[in-house]
Design a protein around this nucleic acid. Structure first.
Length: 657
DNA sequence: GGGTGCGTTGCTTCG
DNA sequence: GCGAAGCAACGCACC
């Protein structure tokens, strides 16, 4: 029996500590071990990845490669620039591989890719070993223990998790690594299809990362941003296992913070330092093990408890945050590609949002482009994305997101609610795409799940609880320091007006150096002439728009369609939504379902100037609906919102009495 | 099958 | 400055 020649395939586990899959590879006692990364064109061109997340990935790879070399000077992370599906058949043969080892990945594309690779390995006589290490529980096992259904609540995760058993303790990092074998590559690579390139807008020059199979110097080097043609990163947050472990230790050195952490009580407006751990990008890239995080926290909590002190508990505690991550992975695992869209998804409520996704007739999946069914909604979307809505708290968050690739969880709630059910009535899939592009911690399962949560299409349904861009920011940061940092136009504004600068008297606006005027288009000549800065007026009256949205949600809940309903699939859902009753909230001249003549489609390949909606008379007319045609709620604010909280509180008090 | 309690993270007013 | 009440009224598990 020849000694094993092993490829360790790094993917979502860019670390050496607590890697069950790497431990399994070493248990084989291989004669040679190739730690590799396959430079997959699916990620390079077909995922939305902005400069900051690229930087974070490259940081993680560089750090891991250095750590490997420390354990064995002959080894490193060998980066091979070809899709795994076409690379592996050749690589197995050339390097005489006996085993392929990797960590399980339940993302929709990853499953498909890994299935193909396992078939290839089988054909080549290569044994495949797969281990779970990305989540606390194997998402498939979680689903199995949840009666085969998506995990849709924390209670379900806790109950299914209890059936699976204890979360394994982390495994120490290896202290040595075998040599790699012969590294020659005599075959020619398959060149990837470069279009569509979802990241074209982030490139300042052409991508050169596929010119040589083992890199420009034939040393299997990790590419640089400039090699990718990607613009420089702007985020202060950097990647790598070394940083992740030191950040974890530093956070956990504060025992009280660790043991009493309650997510809803952390401020979305805190910066330098922020109020949460910022470990999420490390969990995404695997530069931090989720089990390492879990057990280091859990041990502190146990010790805290043993001293008679009261720690916080899931779901608000630190470990609770990890359970939410597992919940979303469990939801995704059961649904596959359909998880990331409304169309043909039985778990998601159908709401006739504006700017709906285009659906491919071939596979019923979203294509990455969308319909501009309404001129005003497209304008709202652009202003939301560019941080020029005229609502300073929303704009500050969106600018922080674009610049730094991270915003606080509650900040994400604010802007997500604002874009969907609590402001613009725009499809959550548009927002999820922007987050995918800009977040350094973007995880499909968590991002999509949270957008469904915030848009009240799945996981959560209390649509009448709505975040106010004025009140919510003020609650956490009455002085407006956060807004002033990310919207410096308002840095001199009095705190009385910082969340609603349009209310400031003109004389004060001039005194504070910024005129609140226009729509954020940049051509505010009056301000420029006077040497003043300019900040846009709010793009709508929030209270009015919020009530329109709530009425729209109420109606959509009453209609009660889900994404897989026949009427959603064939387009007949439109007959169920009376436009006169719901007015501007219904995006019912677009998809899903049958195409409608005259509706504009915005393609992913179009530049920022695309989407010439002004020429579309139908949508233009709709945007200018006369006052009398608007729903009652749009004309006058009738009442505030409500929840059962008040009654529950009253009842409790009564019971206690 | 109806009622009740609860669900990580709302806002405003009032005392 | 704080906590409680009021607002209009979701789904789900459990009894």
């Amino acid at each position: 029996m020849p000694k094993p020649r092993v490829i360790y395939w790094f993917r979502t586990d860019l670390r050496l500590h607590d890697s069950p899959a790497l431990a399994a590879a070493l248990e084989l006692k291989p004669s040679c071990l190739y730690p590799i990364w396959t430079w997959d064109p699916h990620y390079v061109y077909r995922a939305r990845v902005g400069p900051n997340r690229w930087q974070f990935l490259l940081d993680c790879q560089e750090d891991l490669s250095k750590s490997i070399t420390k354990l064995n000077p002959k080894s490193k992370l060998f980066l091979i620039r070809e899709a795994p599906q076409t690379l592996f058949p050749k690589l197995f043969k050339e390097w005489k591989i006996t085993h392929l080892v990797f960590e399980k990945d339940t993302d929709a594309y990853a499953r498909q890719r890994d299935e193909a690779v396992m078939q290839i390995a089988k054909k080549a006589g290569v044994e495949v070993i797969v281990k779970v290490g990305r989540t606390l529980y194997d998402p498939d096992e979680l689903v199995k223990q949840n009666k085969g259904k998506s995990t849709m609540s924390i209670a379900q995760v806790q109950s299914a998790g209890a059936k699976i058993g204890n979360i394994p303790r982390p495994i120490p990092s290896p202290t040595s690594l075998p040599d790699p074998g012969d590294l020659s590559l005599s075959f020619s690579p398959e060149r990837p299809e470069e279009t569509p390139d979802f990241n074209a807008s982030h490139r300042e020059s052409q991508d050169k990362s596929y010119q040589e199979l083992s890199g420009p110097n034939n040393d299997f080097a990790i590419p640089t941003l400039s090699e990718l043609g990607i613009k420089p990163a702007t985020s202060p947050h950097r990647g790598g296992e070394t940083l992740a472990l030191s950040a974890l230790s530093s956070i956990l050195s504060d025992v009280a913070y660790t043991a009493t952490f309650e997510k809803p009580k952390t401020a979305p407006t805190d910066f330098s330092p922020q109020s949460t751990t910022l470990l999420s990008p490390h969990l995404h890239f695997g530069s931090l093990s989720v089990r390492e995080f879990y057990w280091r926290v859990q041990d502190i909590v146990t010790s805290f408890k043993s001293k008679g002190k009261k720690p916080s508990e899931p779901p608000t505690s630190l470990t609770g945050q990890l359970l939410f991550r597992d919940m979303y992975f469990g939801a995704q695992a059961a649904q596959g590609y359909a998880f990331a869209q409304t169309y043909n998804n039985s778990n998601i409520r159908f709401i006739p949002w504006h700017l709906p996704s285009t659906i491919s007739p071939d596979n019923s999946l979203i294509t990455g482009s969308y319909h501009v069914d309404d001129a005003q909604a497209e304008s709202y979307f652009r202003r939301w994305k560019s941080g020029t809505t005229g609502f300073p708290f929303v704009d500050a968050l969106m600018r922080q997101l674009r610049l730094e690739g991270w915003i606080h969880h509650l900040g994400r709630h604010m802007v997500a609610c604002f874009l969907t059910r609590g402001g613009c009535y725009i499809d959550w899939e548009r927002g999820a795409e922007v987050f995918e592009e800009w977040l350094i911690d973007h995880e499909v399962a968590c991002n999509v799940g949270n957008w469904q949560w915030l848009s009240c299409t799945a996981f959560y349904s209390q649509y009448y609880r709505c975040y106010s861009p004025v009140a919510f920011g003020r609650k956490w940061d009455p002085e407006g320091a956060f807004v002033k940092k990310y919207v410096p136009e308002l840095e001199n504004f009095d705190k009385k007006y910082v969340y609603e600068p349009w209310k400031a008297p003109i004389a004060d606006q001039k005194k504070w150096g910024c005129l609140v005027k226009g729509d954020g288009g940049g051509d505010e000549s009056e301000a420029t002439k006077e040497g003043l800065k300019n900040y846009p007026k709010p793009m709508f009256d929030f209270d009015t728009q919020r009530d329109i949205c709530i009425q729209g949600m109420k109606n959509a809940y009453r209609v009660g369609l889900y994404g897989n309903d026949k009427r959603v699939l064939d387009g007949t859902w439109r007959t169920l939504f009376d436009d006169d009753a719901e007015g501007p909230t219904t995006g019912n001249d677009g998809i899903p379902g049958a195409q409608v003549d005259g509706a504009k489609e915005k393609d992913v390949d179009e530049g920022e100037d695309a989407g010439d909606f002004e020429s579309d008379s139908k949508t233009a007319q709709k945007a200018k609906k006369p006052e009398h045609q608007k729903p009652k709620s749009a004309r006058k604010r009738e009442a505030g919102q409500s929840t059962l909280d008040g009654m529950v509180t009253r009842k409790k008090k009564k019971d206690q009495a």
